[in-house]
Design a protein around this nucleic acid. Structure first.
Lengths: 371, 371
DNA sequence: CTGTTAGCGCCTTCAG
DNA sequence: CTGAAGGCGCTAACAG
């Protein structure tokens, strides 16, 4: 609480202010023989009229001096830092890494810089990230990370965002997040339905779901999609077939151990990482994919095609999601015009799914009959 | 040239400065009944003495008002933004994503924010990234990306860095880069030697190398390591066994097509991505790994253990590299004390390497004898 | 220990 | 079309 106001935890024994050997507007003005105002007007791209000659002199002087405007000063004057902050769960997770890349590309094209912060799905950390962004006066915050379902936390977050927005900031969401904000979304429910449906279409009936972290909204929505698809097909939902996959390789791998103990023929993983982990885990137990068990993922990260078994999955254009997110931010920053969008998704059939194996009849007491 | 001085390419038709509904130092000062200076002294963690009572009043007022220091203003006054910029080749590449994560973690612990920029290995883009960082007044630039071997470009870069450093900035390198700067390095030569040596130890003699992009220093160094190991073992270097893998999945996959046309029994890939791509490509041609051909990578990215064949590779602690890099930055920022470091590396044996298959005798004219 | 005084570099009314 | 003046929010001497 209190220390949140103080600056560096690590005692800011700053070794005096850094030197200021920068060339400033005044220097350019001097060399060009005009006033600083004029220089400002031309280098900042202002629409204030400036004579062609003055402009030329300024540009020339600026070039000679290799003048670069000090954005910090500009930011203090304009209350715009030309900076965007993105919050992810983990920058090392390929899902987020691809989104970051997309954001960064477009932000860069518009001369904006991108801050990246990982929350590790921890409420406190997430708040800290947001606070840091606010403190750094970012122009917009992009929520690439799904919301965490925890009322008090969401309230705290909302308060911060409200403040941020009141101050002129923008919040954009790229995932399932309860905070009301424009964003680029894709249909997380539909994506899970599509994955599950694919297995159903193939003839599977005992289908397991490897869920994401409980506390995440996106996990719930995807689990819901799985249930919907099952229900539409008249397949009863069996909670014993839902295992935690934690959206991770290790999680999927661990979950697969539980899966092999069941009579499941198909696995819907809440994301590709989990699916790949599961395939790996299955292989370790001598279970063949897709011969014995089919596995389908969600997201189509780059690695999906290079998994132990090339992964059938539901494609979502992640880099493009990031790009569109950044474009949305730029639009908001320019005209304040909201223009949310939706990304399509589609099935990518590779080799990890197939019709279920011929049904092995299970004897009454659960023992396998002789082969 | 000229436009580099002007601001946003996309016409900065800024819709007026953003509102200023922020609580400032003065507000806190007013409420606490002290001067702004006093507030500044306590919230900035200055070592200037402040009475316990004043301090308490300030802290209390700050909390009530939910005061957050405006870092932009602070930055303008101190010439320190508490901001670090990292340049990578591609933020979506797991190698860089892991490093970014490490940097971000430690930077965050020290209340510094991280800018990320991808150069795509393009000189112009790289310069643009650096210029953007300079303009944003970052306190330090971390070069996670290897240097690009192109004299004019390096000269331009060096000029920018010199300027940056003259101004009080710091440049830290995490890879092979000719610009003289402190950094955390790992032995790229040794890493390639180790990989190659492993294959040699296993009995391989016809060993291919899937190189990284020609223009990168790191590529040259790793290729060199491969040659050294070969040479030490008395195996002649054959340039026909070196293929471009471009440090990418697709590159490795494509390169593997060329490899199968040779009589190679082992492949050293310049990085894991290439290795995984190669394994995939080999599999597509019915070549078994490691039975027919062994493949070893370099880096040990998280996915290495989840490759089509769990990848034997040379481990480098990438996240830790990032963490140490950030620590180095913090040290430089605090005492200006240089304290470079070296990361160790070691072999991780998984399943993609094995002794070469029994030598198939090749008849004089190159045709295979009957099995 | 505290407050007052000047800026940091840039933008932006406002006169001219 | 141009320049002078003031201020963005904070810090850093400098007196007291």
């Amino acid at each position: 609480m209190i220390e949140s106001v103080e600056s560096t935890p690590s005692r800011p024994s700053r070794p005096g202010p850094a030197p200021r050997s920068e060339v400033s507007l005044r220097d350019v003005a001097r060399l060009a023989g005009v006033s600083p105002s004029t220089v400002s007007r031309v280098v900042s791209g202002s629409d204030h009229p400036v004579s062609a000659e003055s402009r030329a002199r300024v540009l020339d002087a600026a070039q000679r001096l290799r003048f670069r405007p000090n954005r910090v000063a500009r930011a203090l004057a304009t209350a715009r830092t030309q900076t965007i902050g993105v919050i992810v769960h983990d920058a090392a997770d390929p899902y987020f890494a691809q989104i970051i890349r997309g954001l960064e590309d477009v932000a860069g094209e518009h001369d904006h810089a991108l801050f990246v912060a990982s929350s590790d799905r921890d409420p406190e950390t997430e708040l800290a990230c947001v606070r840091a962004f606010l403190s750094h006066q970012v122009d917009a915050i992009v929520l690439a990370a799904s919301g965490i379902d925890q009322p008090e936390h969401l309230a705290d977050l909302a308060q911060l965002f409200d403040l941020f927005i009141a101050r002129g900031g923008h919040v954009v969401s790229l995932s399932e997040h309860p905070y009301p904000s424009p964003g680029i979304r894709f249909d997380n429910h539909g994506v899970a339905v599509m994955a599950t449906q694919h297995l159903i279409d193939l003839g599977h009936e005992r289908i397991s779901f490897l869920a994401g972290p409980n506390e995440l909204f996106v996990s719930k929505v995807r689990l819901d999609g799985y249930r919907s698809a099952l229900s539409s097909a008249g397949i009863p939902f069996d909670s014993n077939l839902v295992f935690d996959g934690y959206f991770s390789l290790e999680g999927g791998r661990a979950a697969s151990r539980r899966v092999v103990e069941s009579d499941v023929t198909g696995i819907v993983a809440a994301n590709d990482l989990t699916a790949i982990g599961a395939i790996r885990g299955l292989a370790e137990r001598g279970v063949r994919v897709p011969d014995d068990i089919s596995v389908i993922g969600i997201n189509d990260i780059t690695f999906a095609d290079y998994a132990p078994v090339p992964l059938t999955t539901v494609h979502v254009a992640l880099t493009e999601l990031g790009r569109m997110g950044a474009r949305l931010v730029m639009t908001l920053l320019q005209d304040g015009h909201t223009d949310s969008g939706v990304m399509p998704h589609w099935l990518i059939q590779r080799q990890s799914t197939a019709p279920p194996p011929i049904r092995r009849d299970v004897s009454v007491d659960g023992l396998l009959p002789p082969d």
